[in-house]
Nucleic acid binder design. Structure first.
Length: 809
RNA sequence: GCCGAAGUGGCGGAAUUGGUAGACGCGCGCGACUCAAAAUCGCGUUUCGCAAGAAGUGAGGGUUCGAUUCCCUCCUUCGGCACCA
């Protein structure tokens, strides 16, 4: 009987006691393989069935790679800082540390019950001082190299969470966490200079070009490129009429400069006051104030209808001296380009809408276009020295002209801004900076790290970090002059902690350095990284930035962290909706493990559908897998190997199609694992077992090979049956089976006969049948003759080993 | 609006250097075993049709001896971005 409970406990214990999954730091002969999961946030809800999907995939690969002779690093840890634990503290008074540790304990036992081959000696927890000491070290590393700086800046402020958010955490003008409206607020905040690495930086490949050398889903790369948002064009100076001052604009279409008919400033632009005339002042101020009150969300709601006000001022077009009225409008954003534009209503859709609404002039400067707003096709007109040129040539010529005449220059602009990392929260890594009245901003000396979180804290949010209220934390002495000073009271965005954790795994217990250099160079980069697609921009972009920073300053030799990336699809509830507590449709992995076992859960999640696709859970499907495992178990109990009469280890002399079935299975499973097609690997194993059941016999070598193929997917039952058929050591130590290509091809094939491309008949024949014989035999067939009657065969097509197609008329 | 992914039986899905559409699993039907049930095993299961046969991979066209696969037009769903000049 297949007793999954006792089997799974038995082998998990065996693996642990025999230290089977330790990555070997000292081995120099085996090639290394670093297989990494996105480490989870240990939430109070416990493990979700979505977690083991990715974990099973990396576990299959890890076990497979070990059997192929690799030295595998496969670690797990906890992304443990974050708001939920702190919010719980606010509500219930329980310290976040306590909540977090409790959740970690739950996650640990849940994950361990699934039999993943993690090297638990390297377990990390971002909220432990042993870890965040190095997060703080990383901050100082960036600071010392000019990549971390403080500035007063308008920031996204969530009034409900009482903290600043990164641009990436603002979704539709709302806080991604609590969905309350996000306000703009000026605050003094820490930033990381991610923009330094957009383009190649010395020897270090940039965030854009680096994408070309990594094996990631194309859609993820495109998202990253879009997020970076590179635009090439020019900045152009327009003289302001009556003032000795320039208004600088950014444009990607300098070719359309002769078509500019008005100018627009963002309402927050510093020139607004200056250019506004007395007659227009009241109206302008009213508009500016209205805009200030509007949140991003409201601005988006108004998207359809353009609004704006004429300032009364004029600017001079540098190419033709035209006087252009200067307007203010909120469709021009202060945060992008220069916060000012030249408007070309003939060739920009937004400017066109605006000009139509306010009756402004529209001058066409490109003819023969399919779409006037597209940058394709067309010939310049009404543009003096550009007339007759194509758009691309005109852009180049105009930029040259601007540069020669000192009124503009070539310019590339990016959407990506520097990363704002300050958070006014408690449950995060404290920023290791001290403010001294005499010495100013002083980094905490490395020897004094970690700056630990205090315990005398009131968690109620005040708009300042709860750390401000802690006497023990806040009051310190200046490391330079020893006078009384204040410690920075903000903590770091939790994304900082999770952007470098994969470096820590290579040397997780080192208390001298972030990780020993030789181990960084031994294990990095990560060979395979698996996790949800929701981290497409944030986490992955930040991690790449950190890697590039370390590379640039000589700490590591790779400049991309994750060579191969795969996303798992989402697992939906049986009803096709997202699993959620409120809908009551959540599947708890513990229940599945309890009822059917870890092997069933693992295999079912791999069998559900293509790995990267969302699929609905189906309880009947888990039963199907359970039945499959029971069937295997029964087969191995009942089968009598003494009946097997083949002598060779690869079963090439076994009877009844067994060699082909076996070698096809080895080939299919091997290739499917390599290509992340776990669902079809499993179906091939089912085909194999169906075949064997039908035959009622299986040669022993085939039985052994099959268990090896099964072992990465369902390791517990594989170990158990491996023992049952007489082995004393772990199946994980075996070598991965090899297939013989010639044995994967059946001697006899089913030759398909088509008439006019339609299947009419088929017959079994040797795979090597020559064309003439095949066609002659096909024509003999009764069914085929019926179709040929009274007609003429005008063409005969033969695909060796596959089909004959007779074209008749 | 833009970018991306995807549309195949009752369901999840398989098959793409163009070559038997529906592998494998679920569900369902029939049968065997059983006093009975469960489990298990066997057979069947795209639709219409008694059959021969016909239709069929979101819709419509095209290329081809042959298209789920390639090309064009369109529709739908999901995911991401969103006044980025």
């Amino acid at each position: 009987m297949y007793d999954h409970k006792s089997i799974e406990v038995k082998w998990q214990k065996y693996w642990e006691e025999n230290n089977l999954f330790k990555a070997d730091d000292r081995n120099t002969t085996k090639p290394k393989y670093y297989a990494l999961d996105m480490f989870p946030y240990p939430s109070g809800a416990g493990l979700h069935v979505g977690h083991p999907e990715g974990y099973t995939a990396t576990d299959i690969i890890s076990r497979y790679k070990r059997m192929n002779g690799y030295n595998v690093l496969h670690p797990m840890g906890w992304d443990a800082f974050g708001l939920p634990a702190e919010n719980y503290a606010i509500k219930m008074g329980t310290p976040p540390e306590e909540t977090t540790n409790k959740n970690i304990a739950t996650f640990t036992s849940q994950i361990k019950s699934l039999g993943f081959s993690y090297d638990w000696d390297r377990e990390i927890n971002t909220s432990s001082p042993d870890y965040y000491k190095w997060t703080q070290w990383f901050f100082l590393f960036l600071y010392k190299n000019g990549l971390a700086y403080k500035k007063n800046a308008p920031v996204n402020w969530c009034n409900s969470c009482q903290t600043v958010l990164a641009n990436e955490q603002v979704v539709n003008g709302e806080c991604e966490r609590c969905q309350s409206e996000v306000e703009q607020k000026n605050m003094n905040q820490w930033f990381f200079k991610i923009t330094e690495f957009i383009e190649d930086n010395g020897e270090t490949s940039g965030l854009i070009s680096g994408l070309d050398k990594i094996d990631w889903p194309e859609s993820t790369k495109i998202s990253q490129r879009n997020w970076i948002g590179k635009s090439e064009g020019a900045e152009v100076d327009f003289k302001i009429d009556d003032f000795d001052e320039n208004m600088r604009v950014f444009t990607t279409r300098p070719d359309t400069l002769f078509g500019a008919t008005y100018m627009v400033l963002a309402p927050e632009h510093s020139l607004v006051q200056k250019v506004t005339t007395e007659e227009q002042r009241a109206e302008v101020e009213k508009y500016v104030n209205e805009t200030k009150k509007k949140t991003d969300l409201q601005r988006q709601e108004d998207e359809k209808e353009k609004t704006g006000v004429f300032t009364g001022g004029y600017a001079i077009n540098p190419v033709n001296g035209e006087k252009l009225p200067i307007w203010i409008a909120d469709y021009v954003l202060m945060g992008y380009g220069t916060g000012a534009i030249m408007a070309v209503p003939a060739h920009d859709e937004r400017d066109h809408d605006f000009a139509q609404k306010f009756g402004l002039e529209i001058i066409d400067v490109i003819g023969d276009m399919e779409d006037r707003f597209q940058k394709t096709g067309g010939v310049m007109k009404n543009s003096q020295f550009l007339d007759g040129l194509g758009i691309d040539d005109a852009i180049q010529k105009m930029i040259e002209w601007l540069e020669e005449n000192n009124c503009g220059e070539r310019k590339t602009t990016y959407r990506l801004r520097d990363w704002l990392v300050s958070r006014q929260r408690f449950w995060g890594a404290p920023i290791p900076i001290i403010y001294c009245d005499d010495c100013g901003e002083v980094p905490v000396p490395e020897a004094d790290l970690p700056v630990t979180l205090p315990t005398d804290v009131d968690f109620k949010p005040t708009g300042e970090s709860p750390l401000v209220g802690s006497k023990t934390f806040h009051d310190v002495t200046c490391p330079k002059c020893n006078k009384a000073a204040k410690c920075e009271s903000d903590t770091m965005d939790t994304f900082v902690c999770s952007s470098w954790y994969y470096f820590r795994f290579v040397d997780a217990n080192n208390n001298q350095e972030i990780a020993a250099k030789e181990l960084l160079n031994k294990w990095m980069p990560v060979d395979l990284y698996v996790g949800g697609a929701e981290h497409t921009v944030l986490h992955l972009l930040y991690s790449r930035f950190f890697t590039k920073a370390l590379h640039k300053f000589g700490y590591i030799s790779c400049d991309e962290p994750f060579m191969k990336l795969r996303h798992q699809g989402m697992i939906l509830a049986e009803d096709g909706r997202k699993m959620s507590k409120s809908l009551g449709n959540v599947i708890n992995p513990d229940d599945v493990v309890n009822e059917y076992g870890a092997d069933t859960l693992r295999m079912y999640e791999m069998f559900m559908g293509p790995f990267d696709q969302s699929v609905s859970w189906n309880t009947k499907g888990t039963e199907g897998i359970y039945r499959f495992l029971q069937r295997i178990h029964r087969l191995y109990e009942e089968i009598d190997f003494t009946k097997c009469d083949c002598k060779k280890g690869d079963c090439s002399d076994a009877p009844k199609g067994m060699p082909q079935m076996l070698h096809k299975t080895i080939k299919k499973v091997t290739e499917d694992i390599e290509n992340f097609r776990f669902n079809t690997a499993i179906s091939q194993m089912m085909i194999f077992i169906n075949h064997v059941s039908k035959e009622g016999t299986m040669p022993k070598p085939a039985a052994e090979i099959f268990l090896k193929l099964l072992s990465p997917f369902a390791p517990h039952i594989a170990e158990e049956l491996w023992e049952k058929i007489g082995h004393t050591d772990s199946i994980g130590k075996e070598e991965w089976p090899k297939y013989v290509e010639a044995l994967t091809i059946d001697d006899e094939i089913e030759l398909v006969i088509q008439v006019n491309g339609k299947l009419r008949d088929k017959f079994n024949v040797s795979k090597d049948i020559p064309k003439e014989d095949a066609i002659a035999q096909a024509k003999e067939l009764e069914k085929i003759q019926n179709f040929l009657e009274g007609k003429k065969v005008i063409k005969e097509i033969f695909v060796p080993g596959k089909l004959v197609n007779l074209v008749v008329k």
